[in-house]
Amino acid sequence: MAFNCVNHEYYLNFGDRVLAMIRKIFHNNPEFRHDSLKHAARFAPIIPFMSGRPDLSKTLKRVVTFPDHSNSLYFGCPIILAAGANKTAKRICDYANMGFGGISVGTATRNFREGNTHRPRVGFIEEERAIHNSMGLNNEGVEVIARRVDAQLAKAHKVGLCVGVSVAETPGLTNDEDKLKDVVESFAIAYKAGDYIEINVSCPNTGESRVDMDLSLTEKIFSEIMKFRNSQTLRKAVYAKISPDLSECHLVNIMDMLVRCGVNGVVVGNTYPTKKISELPVQTKFEDLTPLRADGDCGGMSGRPLYENMVWNVKYIREHYPQMSVIACGGIDHGFKVFDLIKMGVDAVQCYSVVAFRWMAAHSMRKELAAALKETGYATLQDYDNHNPKVTTLK
């Protein structure tokens, strides 16, 4: 695939400088920004200089369909707030105020988790416009989260949000059978609530081995998950969230396995293990980072430096596995990037770190995406899709 993505730049405006000042003032309390996002989303419509409201125009609406006739997904725009931003599933509709067309809540585990008790567990890398974290999958448990999603889903659809639920294995389990039972139970509970389910098998932030490093266990998990899914009356889409640091051989093995199991798509990808930060286009070194766990680890990195790596993975998957739906995640901070990825065959994108560096980021990215469409002669994203159908041939 010859198409090349440019790491488009945006220029700081007044709001971006306000965010920079907030980060500087609260540099000793880096979780403040993470915790304050829910308040910004809630009050965006009534704060004059934010002026954030749901955008219900048809310009950027997108419908994602699947070759196996799983339920289609309806996004107000193809920009999704990634898992980790709203771990509680409270006040989901508020995030439409910030311009998002979808949201993945969680990540949820089978039961309540406090997460990593070390402080700090979040760090900013200002010069790279990046964040690293080791939150440790703190959440209230999948039953609580699924119940909240179910209660809000209809309202979320009215404000243009497609809602996914992200689930993961509970850290601390040592027996493969226990791990398998744990993930499948969480999936079954989440399945009743979300529009789609995202299985996180690649979290580098818990201090334990990632599930995607054990291909045998990973295949058992997805086989059981899809067996459950196929037994249900409603066929909801299932996505696997994979790591961005896989070798080509490991990526092929995982993708082949996901195809065999009938998984609908992949989220490409998760946070990048900071131990491998030298593989990214950054000046920062691992030893420069703030330790986020008692063992000295610095967790996983997200933000602008992940973009080139993510694009390589997306290109490879779209070329070799055209039947798989792809949601791109990693370093996406500009609407032109979103359009570049759409031209590569991506169904939607996820982002989160950008909201720490760019004022009302999703709204800005929507404007840029609409401008990119207009430059190429399309009035709406639907027009583009009608004239540029994706290749989804089953192998």
Rank of each mutant, 00 (worst) to 15 (best):
C261E: 15
T271Q: 07
R129Q: 15
D385F: 02
V142H: 01
G101H: 00
N133G: 08
K343P: 01
R110C: 10
S72I: 05
V105G: 03
L19Q: 06
D212T: 14
G194L: 07
P322T: 04
Y272K: 00
A328G: 07
M365L: 01
D212G: 09
A96D: 04
E319P: 00
A348W: 03
K90W: 10
T393V: 14
M360G: 03
V142E: 03
I189G: 02
S223F: 11
Y307S: 06
M21N: 11
N13D: 15
I254E: 06
I327N: 12
I79K: 00
T117C: 13
F100I: 00
R147S: 15
L306I: 04
I46V: 15
V63L: 09
Y384D: 00
D182G: 04
H34K: 15
L60K: 02
V268M: 13
V167C: 06
Y321M: 09
R33T: 10
A362W: 02
Y321K: 08
L251K: 11
T109F: 07
L251G: 07
F357S: 03
R235A: 12
V122R: 14
S223K: 13
I277G: 01
N86K: 04
D35S: 15
Q283P: 05
G141Y: 05
R147E: 15
N253E: 15
M1Q: 14
E375M: 10
R304G: 05
I242E: 09
M98E: 06
P67M: 07
R23A: 11
L12T: 09
P45D: 03
V391D: 15
P45K: 03
L19D: 03
N386I: 00
V165T: 15
A146R: 04
E287M: 08
C351W: 12
M226Y: 08
V252A: 13
K343C: 12
V266A: 11
N230Y: 06
V211R: 05
A83E: 05
K337A: 12
C298S: 11
L369P: 00
T109Q: 09
I46Q: 03
A41I: 00
E185C: 04
Y272I: 00
F339R: 02
D340K: 09
H363T: 06
R229F: 10
K236A: 05
H69V: 09
K227D: 13
L60C: 04
V201H: 05
L153Q: 03
I317H: 11
E128D: 01
Y74E: 11
L280G: 01
D195G: 05
T376V: 12
I80R: 04
A146L: 05
A370K: 03
H39D: 15
S72W: 07
N388C: 01
A108N: 00
H118V: 07
D94F: 00
Q283Y: 11
N264K: 13
V183M: 12
N13Q: 14
D214S: 08
L73A: 05
S364T: 10
C329W: 05
H320W: 08
R366W: 00
L289Y: 10
